[in-house]
Amino acid sequence: MRYGFVIDLKKCYGCYTCTVVCKAANHTPKGVDFAKCYQGEIGTYPSALRQMLPTLCMQCAEPECLAVCPTGATVQDENGIVTVDRDLCMGCKYCMVACPYGQRHIVPEWENYYPGAGDDLDQYQAYAKATWEEKNGYGVATKCDFCRERLKQGRQPACVEACPAKARYIGDLDDPESEISMLIRRERGFQLNPEFGTDPSVYYLPAR
């Protein structure tokens, strides 16, 4: 099976819930967003148009990050999810420059969310820091993994579960009968920047 995502740009109204709930679920440090949203704008008033673009790791079938990784730290599991083995990564940043979608992050150290507070972490931030250190650590590449641990428990990724517009779907791209495969076929789903030959597993449905 190959996990895939569909994000319906018709439904998304740019509330950033995915960004925030991802932060809460993955305890990402300051400045790191696994589910970043971009604002797009074309034209000028009165014919200007805006469109949000929520992103996450595209879990490409042909990942650039995996091709350029010199240590073999980047691996693709049997479900198509790309992860980093922190015991092999040395933090060369090649994958960060190679990923066309900007989905790779290296955290040098935990930075306090509150400016000027130094090392004085409140209990919530201390918990987030401990969780981050346990799962990801510092000086090595980290990334979105479609909330793999939640998927193993039969739950949906945090961003899918929380999306108030129900604009996000997860499913099996290999199964032509799955909800996401049907959506992609019926509504002309497209991938971001197919010219890079990465074959992303995240599809978008056009807004209009």
Partner: peptide
């Protein structure tokens, strides 16, 4: 020194199949 984990630089020799960092190393 620019590496995220400088102490682990020796890992760079591991995957010369596709990575130009490994080949270059």
């Amino acid at each position: 020194l620019d590496l995220g984990s400088p102490a682990n630089f020796w890992r760079a020799w591991r995957k010369p199949q596709t990575s130009w960092i490994a080949r270059g190393t």
